[in-house]
Design a protein around this nucleic acid. Structure first.
Length: 576
DNA sequence: GCGATCAGCT
DNA sequence: CACAGCTGATCGC
């Protein structure tokens, strides 16, 4: 869970992923992705009023995030205040793919106070950073002053997490082996209620030429790449539906949607629960799929970068400062010298200056690679045991397994939080605007005393005169061509010169979902090989591509509104 | 009644 | 385990 307080030291009049407390005074808001722990305060009435009185305060996010956000009525009032993409005359802001969930981006701020990268939540594979064009200037990596990084799995237990490709292959194999047995063999993907599993749906749907049953299609209506792989028709062999009541509802031979039979024949159901931390607990060499009961499985699955991936990313960027956005497991709020009210991270020490950047090579060879090769089949003849028994059993390792575990988990040079991160960061109680710098000279920035006064008129009236320090405006440079496809994850540099647009199309990150045959309008990099394709996070890319025609949408909306089941088939989105 | 917060539970 | 999110209890306004 993000504990980022919302503001960056370098550009404190901007708030990111936090919208409460002092962030009410921000001049501009950024939302990296649509998860609740990054949306604190976003539906607050104070913020709503501020917007109504402001001409320039806006929320900046990717198109996909906008779509997902507005799908929730509680956030619908943001519609007229969202801008995406954008640029600023003072600060160039670039949206980079974050690989965390649909629409997730990192924000790269480039301005007078240096280049700052805010990762939001992210998962990039080792070696991905060199492929992100906008982190480079020519052939050189841009100078990065600070990185505010997703440190969720900055913990030796997550030293390595199997790649998306490996995890996906494991799940595919399990699903395939099951559903091929008969039409009555069905799979329930027990996914948490969050965006981020969509690429699982699309890949499974593609591979098995089917659709995945979900509770609602509404949020995906403008994302045909996802929409074509999900359905509200329960007659499918792969479900990811949920029931608000407890999971016992889906115990026995029953899906959360209530399905128990097909054509009068009882279903044979297995459940697959995507998990990261559960696997982090057992760091012995394991398969990416573990059977936990007669009909239940855990599948390794992460949408946060592992320790190694974080290190690889930061080692490549070599930032001056690294600020963690998340207090990792094993650390608690008690580590903080200040109360939780006033700070969100341990305050200290510029002793990690300069460059707390890890020496990747030196550390790596002290670890075993815990990544699993997925060659072992997860057997149907594994012991039929109760869930808890097996789970308990998994924890008691054999002797030799324990050895591996020790080597995996207790490297001679264990990662040290203090050595890696610059931990001082901007907090509510600490207004760096005047506590440390004059270089940020926003004439309209509230003074500290005013900032603590919730009744300050700035909140509602500040924008009658344009803020010259931080003016943002809609970029006209994004043509409908490349923005058609890549909104969620193309590097949206929004201040692009027209001639740069060609290069954008050649960027490997602008590639799209693998194996889709209906992708002629998608931008594919020429240099990609097949093996590269599936190793990327196949973020659903294209809110704007193949925009559904109004008539099609109208039909869909009518059906959805009437509660009718809507079945979208590939290649004919928008018609049942 | 609403929002904020927290315990509890996935 | 704290991945992300829900429900419900409690408290203050």
């Amino acid at each position: 869970m993000s504990s980022f307080a919302g503001r960056m030291r370098e550009y404190p009049t901007i708030s990111l992923d936090r919208f409460d407390r002092e962030n009410l005074y921000a001049r501009a808001y950024f939302l990296s992705h649509c998860h609740k722990d990054h949306m604190k305060g976003l539906k607050g009435p104070l913020l709503k009023r501020k917007l109504q009185f402001s001409r320039t305060v806006r929320l900046y996010c990717s198109f996909v995030t906008k779509e997902l956000l507005l799908n929730n009525p509680k956030y619908a009032f943001w519609e007229e205040y969202i801008v995406s993409p954008f640029f600023s005359s003072q600060v160039v802001v670039t949206l980079l793919p974050a690989g965390h969930c649909p629409g997730s981006v990192m924000f790269l701020f480039e301005g007078s106070r240096g280049n700052v990268l805010y990762t939001g939540d992210f998962r990039l594979a080792t070696g991905d950073a060199p492929r992100i064009e906008y982190l480079h200037s020519g052939s050189r990596v841009k100078d990065i002053q600070s990185v505010y990084v997703d440190s969720t799995f900055y913990d030796p237990r997550y030293y390595k997490i199997p790649t998306r490709e490996v995890c996906l292959n494991g799940i595919s194999e399990l699903v395939g082996n099951w559903i091929r047995q008969s039409p009555y063999h069905v799979v329930w993907l027990n996914c948490k209620a969050a965006y981020g599993y969509e690429y699982l749906f699309t890949n499974l749907g593609e591979q098995f030429n089917t659709q995945i049953h979900v509770n609602s299609l509404a949020m995906f209506i403008k994302m045909p790449e996802i929409l074509s792989y999900v359905t509200t028709d329960r007659r499918t062999q792969i479900h990811a539906c949920r029931h608000p009541k407890n999971e016992e509802y889906s115990q026995g031979n029953r899906m959360p949607c209530g399905c128990t039979t097909a054509d009068g024949i009882p279903l044979r159901i297995i459940s697959i629960k995507p998990s990261t931390m559960w696997f982090g607990e057992r760091s012995r060499k394991t398969n990416v799929i573990i059977k936990t009961g007669a009909s239940s499985y855990r599948a390794c699955f992460s949408f946060h970068s592992s320790y190694s991936e974080i290190k690889d990313f930061l080692s490549y960027l070599q930032p001056v400062n690294v600020y963690p956005n998340v207090i990792p497991i094993g650390r608690t709020l008690n580590d903080k010298p200040h109360s939780p009210e006033t700070t969100s991270l341990p305050v200290s020490v510029d002793e990690s200056f300069p460059l707390p950047v890890p020496d990747t090579v030196a550390v790596v060879h002290n670890y075993l690679d815990c990544t699993e090769s997925n060659d072992e089949e997860e057997d149907g003849e594994e012991q039929k045991e109760q869930e808890e028994v097996i789970e308990g059993g998994e924890m008691r390792e054999t002797q030799q397994e324990k050895k591996v575990e020790d080597e995996c988990k207790e490297p001679s040079s264990a990662p040290k939080w203090e050595e890696f991160f610059t931990v001082e960061t901007l907090t509510d109680s600490q207004n760096s605007l005047n506590s440390q710098s004059q270089s940020c000279r926003s004439a309209t920035t509230p003074s500290p005393s005013r900032m603590t006064d919730s009744q300050t008129p700035e909140l509602f009236s500040e924008e009658e005169t344009p803020d010259e320090n931080f003016s943002l405006s809609l970029s006209a440079s994004l043509s409908n061509h490349s923005s058609q496809n890549m909104d969620s994850y193309l590097p949206d540099t929004l201040i692009l010169q027209p001639e740069q647009r060609g290069r954008e199309q050649g960027d490997a990150w602008t590639s799209t979902m693998s194996g889709r045959e209906d992708s002629e309008d998608l931008i594919l990099p020429v240099e990609r090989s097949e093996s590269q394709v599936s190793s990327d996070f196949d973020i659903p890319c294209t809110p704007e591509s193949k925009v559904p025609q109004p008539e099609e949408l109208l039909q869909l909306y009518r059906k959805l509104a009437s509660g009718e089941e809507v079945v979208i088939r590939k290649g004919s989105q928008g018609s049942a």
